[in-house]
């Protein structure tokens, strides 16, 4: 099939970017979305043009590298998928597809569709861990953890750190990302000890880095490729309030 593409091209962090039109013939429904971009890049290189830079690695929906805003939605159409899991079966001959990078002040563009998500690293460094030195850990089965809690912690821990929640949010808030980590660790007895400090420090860092506030819109939950629920934000808010006392 033949498709039209409008892709954000930007030479470098300080240069001005813009949408560039491409027509691509010979696209197969069997391609994944990123294989379609590989194919576009092959045609560009063979024509002597520069390929579109985009971030990707595992191509199976687990590394969190994908960061494409497709037709106005992070990771495109479809529930609980990353861009690399999106297939060209979602599109028809003659469709126009607009591809942009994540748009958020805290995620500046590096080139084309690649953004700098190091702000997430800084938030994690502010407290997204349990202070357990290697060698100091007790026997793994010494603390039984109710299966329901372990399962809920797992659901929160499934976060990929891709940033779709920020890209989806009109406020560019990172609350779902931050709450997933705080919730995971607060649910587990081994992480519960540091909950107050963790909530206070991670939220302070998030604010400092220019992410917006949460106004309960819920777009983050709708677009999260791992289906992380906003109930974690509620747990975060409780932990944050508790941290004041």
């Amino acid at each position: 099939m033949k498709i039209k593409l409008k892709i954000w091209r930007q030479e470098s962090p300080d240069s001005k970017g813009g949408l560039v039109d491409y027509e691509l013939d010979g696209v197969s429904k069997e391609m994944s979305f990123l294989e379609m971009l590989d194919y576009l890049n092959t045609t560009l290189i063979e024509r002597g043009e520069e390929p579109v830079a985009f971030e990707h690695d595992c191509r199976e929906g687990i590394c969190g590298c994908c960061s494409l805003f497709i037709n106005g939605r992070p990771h495109g159409v479809g529930a609980e998928i990353t861009t690399c899991e999106l297939r060209m079966t979602a599109f028809e001959n003659g469709n126009t597809i607009v591809i942009e990078p994540w748009r958020a002040k805290a995620f500046p563009v590096i080139r084309d569709l690649i953004v700098d998500r190091s702000a997430f690293e800084k938030i994690m460094q502010a407290g997204g861990f349990i202070s357990a030195n290697a060698g100091a850990a007790p026997e793994a089965n010494s603390i039984p953890i109710p299966k329901e809690l372990a399962d809920e912690a797992f659901d929160a821990a499934a976060c990929l750190g891709c940033g779709a929640c920020v890209a989806a949010c009109p406020n560019a808030s990172a609350m779902l990302f931050v709450s997933a980590k705080i919730s995971q660790l607060a649910l587990l007895p081994q992480g519960e000890v540091e909950t107050k400090r963790r909530a206070r420090d991670m939220i302070a860092k998030m604010d400092e880095l220019g992410f917006g506030a949460c106004s309960n819109i819920g777009a983050c939950e709708a677009e999260c490729p791992k289906g992380i629920e906003i109930s974690h934000i509620a747990r975060l808010n409780r932990a944050f309030v508790a941290s004041a006392f």
Binding site: F129, A132, A137, P138, A140, P144, P146, A150, F154, Q184
Partner: peptide
């Protein structure tokens, strides 16, 4: 070490 670090390994109903 991994359990202490917060890795949510699968558990039985016993915990």
């Amino acid at each position: 070490q991994l359990v202490a670090s917060g890795v949510p390994f699968a558990r039985d109903y016993s915990g």
